[in-house]
Design a protein around this nucleic acid. Structure first.
Lengths: 252, 252
DNA sequence: CATATTATTCTGTCCGACCATATTCACGTT
DNA sequence: AACGTGAATATGGTCGGACAGAATAATATG
C-alpha cells in the first residue's frame, strides 16, 4: 500500500473561482487594459471551456470587486478601476460584523486627518484649494441647518483627503470616514458646533493656501479632538460598537 | 398622450443583486448571526422566489466579500467575519490599476506605523508583547538570510499593528502593507540592513514593554525613514507605480 | 450623411439534469 | 449508552438548453 499522504489534498478549486482568478490576473497584469470591453459571456465560456453559468458566476466575483462593470443601462462589460464605494462597502461590513468601536475609528482618524491636512498643505492643487474654499463658503451660508452642516463637514474632510494627493491614504480613509457619518450627525444635532467647526475649517484652509503644513496639521488635530470632546459632551458612548448606517447614496 | 417623464426610469435592479443585497442586509443587521448556517441554495431560491442560478450568483457576491463562506471541503454556508485577505485583495487590485506609487504607500505608512507603535505601547497585551519578543529572537537567529529577514520584518510590523488593538487601523493598513512586500524584499536584498533593522525593532519593543509610547513612536518613525533612505540608496525609484506581487500565500 | 427601421446579439432569468461528495441517519458493536 | 460504520439522502458544482426583452449592429430610408 502506498503512502496516502503523497496524493491527498489536491484542493480542486471550483471552476468559477479559477475562471475569476484567471481573468483578474489578466486584468491586473495589464493584458487587458482598463476601459477595454470583455468578450460576451458565451464567448468567454467558449474561451475558458466552461459553461456560461460558470462564467457568469466568475463575472459576479469580479463585478463585486469593481474591476469589471457595465455602463448604466448597458450590456457590454468593461474593465474598470474600482470605485471607492465598491471597496469601502465590504470593509465597513467587516467592521460592523467585528463590532469595531467608534473609539477605534476615532483613534485612526486622529492619526490620519492631521497627516492629511499636512500633506494637503504641501501638495494640494489650486483647484483642490478652490474646492475647499467653496465648501467653506457654503458652510458659512448654511449656518443653522444641522443636517446640511453635517453634510458639509463630511464633504470638507473628503475634499481634504483628495487634496493630499495620496490615493493610498484616500482608500484607507474612505471606509472609516463612512462609518463616522452617524457620529457626525449625532454631534452636530445635539451641540451647536457649527461655529467652532467653521472656524477650524477656515484656519485649516488658510494654512493650506499659505502652504503651511504645520499649522494645517495642528488645526486639524485640534478640530478632531474637538469632535471627540463634543461626542462626550453629547453624552454618547464612544466605546460602543458602530452600527449599520442607513444613509442615502453618496457616490464616488 | 400622458407625460412620458412620470413613469420613466424604474431602474430594475437585477434579481441576483437584489437577493445579495437582501441577504447582506439581514446579516449586517444581525438577523442572521455570525457562525450560523444559511439555508441550502434550493431553500434560499424557494424563500426568495427566484431560481437557484440566481441565488448562486447572489451568493458569489457575498462570498467575495467574505461575509459568507464554507469551511474547507465543506458544503454548508456559514455567515462569517471577512478575513483580512478577503478585504485587502480588492484594494490592492484597485491600487495597482490606479498605478499608485510606492511613494504614496510610503507616505501613508510613515503616518500609520509610528502611530501604531505608540498605541502598541499603550494597549499591547502581555501575549502580544511576547509575540514581538519572539519575533525579535528569531530575527537575531536568522541574521544573514535576506529572504528570512524580510519575512520577519514584515511579520514584525504585522504583529505591531495587531498589538495596537485597533481593528480599524489594522484593516486600513493591511492592503498597504501587502503592497510593500516587494519593496521590503528589494531593500533587504541589496543592502545589508539586518543590523539596523534589528536594532530599531529592539528599541521599539523595549519601549513598548516599558509602556513608553513616545519612544516607541519615535523609533518607529526613524525605522520607517530609514527604510526610505535605504530604498533610495539601493537606487530604486520610489515614484514608480507599484506592481503585481507574485507572493506565496500569507494567510489571515 | 443623418436618421429611422430591422435584424442580431447578448444578458438576465428560468428549468431540468448529472456527478461527486458532504451530511445525515439508522444500525450494529463494544 | 457511547461509538464507529456504512447506506441513504441532500447539496453544491457544472452543464445544456430555452426564452423574453433590451442593447447593439446592420440596413434601409429620407
Amino acid at each position: 500500500m502506498i503512502d496516502e499522504n503523497v496524493l491527498q489534498p489536491l484542493h480542486t478549486e471550483p471552476a468559477y473561482k479559477l475562471a475569476a482568478r484567471t481573468m483578474r490576473e489578466r486584468i491586473l497584469n495589464g493584458d487587458i487594459k482598463v476601459g477595454e470591453v470583455l468578450p460576451s459571456e458565451l464567448a468567454l465560456a467558449d474561451l475558458l471551456q466552461v459553461n456560461r453559468s460558470t462564467v457568469r458566476e466568475a463575472i459576479r466575483l469580479l463585478e463585486e470587486n469593481g474591476i469589471v462593470s457595465r455602463k448604466p443601462g448597458g450590456k457590454k462589460l468593461f474593465v474598470s478601476i474600482p470605485k471607492s464605494t465598491d471597496l469601502s462597502g465590504p470593509i465597513t461590513g467587516a467592521m460592523i460584523l467585528q463590532k469595531v468601536t467608534l473609539n477605534e475609528l476615532f483613534r485612526t482618524m486622529h492619526v490620519l486627518e492631521p497627516a492629511i491636512a499636512r500633506d494637503a498643505a504641501l501638495y494640494a492643487s489650486p483647484e483642490q484649494i478652490a474646492a475647499l474654499e467653496a465648501n467653506l463658503a457654503q458652510t458659512e451660508a448654511q449656518a443653522g441647518d444641522d443636517a446640511m452642516l453635517s453634510e458639509l463637514d463630511i464633504a470638507f474632510h473628503n475634499l481634504m483627503s483628495e487634496a493630499c494627493n495620496n490615493r493610498a491614504i484616500l482608500l484607507s480613509r474612505q471606509p472609516i470616514s463612512e462609518l463616522f457619518y452617524p457620529a457626525f450627525d449625532a454631534v452636530m444635532k445635539r451641540l451647536n458646533a457649527g461655529e467652532r467647526m467653521l472656524a477650524a475649517h477656515r484656519h485649516i484652509v488658510d494654512a493650506i493656501r499659505a502652504r503651511d503644513p504645520k499649522t494645517a496639521e495642528d488645526w486639524m488635530r485640534r478640530h478632531i479632538e474637538d469632535f471627540r470632546r463634543g461626542y462626550e459632551l453629547a453624552n454618547l458612548d464612544i466605546d460602543l460598537p458602530i452600527a449599520r448606517l442607513p444613509r442615502s447614496g453618496t457616490e464616488d
